[in-house]
Design a protein around this nucleic acid. Structure first.
Lengths: 331, 331
DNA sequence: ATGAAAGCGCTAACAG
DNA sequence: CTGTTAGCGCTTTCAT
């Protein structure tokens, strides 16, 4: 077995509780004793057993991070940032992929919750009812979904969508399409609402096409409808859809941005590396990940720690203009 | 507090040990009692506390997964697969990103190891010496690095590189470059060795350029050297480097694949969606993730479980020919 | 087949 | 400031 607190106690001639204090409340122990114990612990290669500690403190110092699809390029930067922030705060994080399956998501939360102090739910597919029930078991912070009474981090894609429509209108486009995402997506709803409003204001006609699968296949499949719609600009649910659409349009002899301007959402790696470089709405995924972790930790600490119990943080998005949008051709 | 085994015992009128058995050794308990206990547990929403269980059994049912960079598109499919496989086996997984920092990697392993039954090390940056020392603390399985006496999952990129050189030679190229990766990368060394051999056999001149940063920036930065080298084909450390290179060449008026053919490694999403579609060596990342988890679990179970203690699994790679390679122009 | 009791590694009052 | 004493939730002999 590994070296325990008991070994350290014996080797340094003090009681276990003193060793314990040395690690969890150093100020309560004599400086001399402390350094001695520390030295012995170091020498023995002692590492506190967090699971055992959790048993008495009720704090595991672990977080759960649940996402729909790790392989979706939107998530890795978020996971990376959340994980880094957690480590900074001395927390480890379980990462789980639900494969877009609500039942699996629920099962995961339930088995995980005994082992974590809180759970980060990213773009959850679970029904509000279930989330409501689960939150009694473990603190939640939700990313990119609006949920009454829960701490939430939102990336304000609506704002970005508005700016995108402005951009397109400014380039002279009068007729544009919006490729929506999955039915249950909060992001998609936000985009729809904001784009509708902005289009109306700028007197741009908006054609809504969807729902679409949130992948390149979704975009590819929508190319037919886009080509037939006669629009000269398209705002897509995400970069993947945009990239798939561009591919589909190309197959039909429609040039981007020559004939049609295309805008994505996420500023994902594929969009940055594609040709033409994708104009896209930037999502503050890393900031959202860090923020979500801090809010979760604050929630865990409890209201006594001066943390606002239920907050909704709205992070700004931006429009990154690259090569896939251009002035409408004067044909 | 949450509902414990004690609550279930009280509510179903049996002793805690019986409840415990109901979950961990069902066959040792009377069928009638078992169903009753199960029903009560279900009704109370009882979930065993894995951390507490770990304290007595020594098995946490958790795995650690350590990668250099979650945001590198090579890793997400591997993480996803490993995580899914682990869940299948009733294991949860901690995911940690080392930011390519060996010290952080070591620290992570040391704090994690008390909470996991084993660790999956993906493309570790740690020195062999340190790994050697750490393996005493916790079972390891290493992905994409050759390590004496450790269970290892290798993706045979050397084989793929050989095929790639064949492909290029078959297209009439007589002079090609290899953009290597980071100094410490096993993958890079394998590619170098195999490409050198294959080039020699096919009487192709091989120019080695590197080391390069394993990102699009690395490729971009190498474009100058590639353009100056006068090669007509380039095999790159990974897709990102290839994509960066293509971008850099384009800026210099060099067309891909018109003037230069480019091959990447990974079959990552950006390569699939870029233009021209990248010819690439496919890496069996998902299979490697699943395999690594199963080998790790076997290692944990111990040699008594009939598992080969130290295996080296070599997974085949392939060449996916798309649009970034073509017959050498007869100029 | 079930109960009793001890203990996993650690923390948390409570004494002293 | 340090030692004593209980447990945290669960498994595991050992009895019964």
């Amino acid at each position: 077995m590994a070296v325990t607190i008991r070994d350290v106690a014996r080797a340094s001639g003090v009681h276990v509780s003193t060793v314990s204090r040395t690690f969890s409340a150093p100020h309560l122990v004599n400086a001399e004793t402390r350094t001695r114990v520390l030295a012995v612990a170091e020498g023995l290669g002692y590492r506190p057993n967090r699971a055992a500690r959790a048993l008495t403190t009720g704090r595991t110092h672990n977080l759960g991070l649940i996402v729909a699809d790790i392989a979706n390029p939107f998530f890795p930067p978020l996971i990376k940032a959340a994980q880094a922030q957690a480590r900074e705060r001395d927390y480890h994080v379980f990462v789980a992929d639900t494969d877009e399956d609500p039942l699996l998501e629920q099962e995961l939360i339930e088995t995980l919750c005994k082992q974590v102090d809180g759970v980060l739910l990213c773009s959850p597919r679970l029904s509000n009812r279930v989330i409501e029930r689960l939150r009694a078991q473990v603190p939640f912070v939700v990313v990119n979904r609006r949920l009454k009474g829960l701490t939430t981090v939102l990336m304000d894609v609506g704002q970005g969508a508005g700016v995108a429509v402005e951009h397109v209108a400014g380039l002279g486009h009068r007729r544009m399409a919006l490729l929506t995402g999955p039915q249950s997506s909060w992001t998609s709803e936000e985009m729809l609402a904001a784009a509708t409003l902005a289009a109306h204001e700028r007197d741009v006609e908006l054609v809504v096409i969807g729902p679409n699968e949130p992948t390149e296949h979704g975009g590819l499949a929508a190319a037919q409808a886009v080509a037939a719609s006669g629009v000269t600009a398209v705002l897509c649910y995400n970069d993947l859809v945009a990239l798939g659409l561009i591919e589909g349009l190309r197959e039909r002899g429609v040039d981007v941005p020559g004939d049609v301007s295309v805008i994505g959402v996420d500023d994902s790696l594929p969009g940055r590396l594609s040709r033409p470089k994708l104009t896209t709405i930037t999502m503050p995924t890393a900031a959202a990940g860090r923020m979500a972790v801090d809010l979760l930790l604050a929630t865990i600490a409890g209201p006594d720690a001066g943390a606002p119990p239920r907050t909704t943080v709205r992070l700004e998005t931006g429009l990154l203009i690259r090569e896939s949008t251009q002035r409408v051709s004067s044909s």
